[in-house]
Amino acid sequence: MTALARTLGRQRWIWAYLGMVAVWLATVTFTGGKGGGEIITAALSFAAFTVIVGIGQMFVITTGPGNVDLSIPATISLSGAVAMKLMGGDNAMLLVGIAASLGCGFAVGLFNYMLIRILRIPPIIATLSSSFLILSTAISYGRGLKIKPPSMLADFTTTQVFGFPVLAFFVILFAAIMALILNRTVYGRAVSAVGQNPRAAWLAGVDVERIRFRTYLQSAVLAAVCGFLLAGFSGGASLNMGEEYLLASIAVVVIGGTSVAGGQGNVAGIIGAAIFMFLLVTMLNTFGASAGVRLIMTGLIIVAVITIAGGDKPQR
């Protein structure tokens, strides 16, 4: 038993799940047991989107210090706006919408990597400046956009089976695949290797640049998928719908036990962290906290978690 506890204690992602359970218990105790199930259903529905972008962000962060994708919110908005406009609420256009959305993701990822590679712009600045351009494109393309998503997409993103959102099921399946990719494939191991020491990885024969390219591309495509699904879920695209995912995508990675210094990713923690983040806001709402207090608490918890986890010394 103690051995089990010790093994679990060494896994940093366990804290996300402990936090998740603690916050849920606090909420349910406050309401006197009412709505406990509904809260979980809602948490799974909303966390699904955070998990999708969180996984993309996690791979980027794992490739080492200075690597972060700040263009995720803008990509979400662009992909949602483009897909909704092209589909025009028509089920027959669903495939076109998916293709357009993925196309947005590919274009953004390609552009980001081009800035990083050809212009040698630090990734943070590169993804930041490209996010300006993407956001402007989304704003000017999607002005006055009030198009309902095709009914099939809306159904897919909102259907529940015995209180379990179908989308959450697919996202968990996807997360499991990504965990396998991170831990069991050449690409995944290479991502960790590059994050630990790019030079050593290069000497060991890892094509560092190809790994970086694939990772930034993957992050942008996942952001685009998130935008597509989110637009379906929330009854249409809105231009600021990506906004909250800047903090959320980084926060779930950090809370989920991934090393911010790179080289050590974790997929399982992202799911726990995403649910934790949603439940936290729910709890503060139930307690009747004002918008200001909710914001302060969200910020402080992220700072607290990163302080306790501590920054690892860059392994160079």
Binding site: I250, A251, G299, I302
Partner: peptide, 19 residues
């Protein structure tokens, strides 16, 4: 704590906004 400034300041931005 040798923390990444991006994460800490991103968190703090919510605190400032909240106040």
């Amino acid at each position: 704590r040798n923390l990444p400034s991006i994460v800490v300041t991103l968190g703090m931005s919510f605190v400032w906004l909240g106040i």
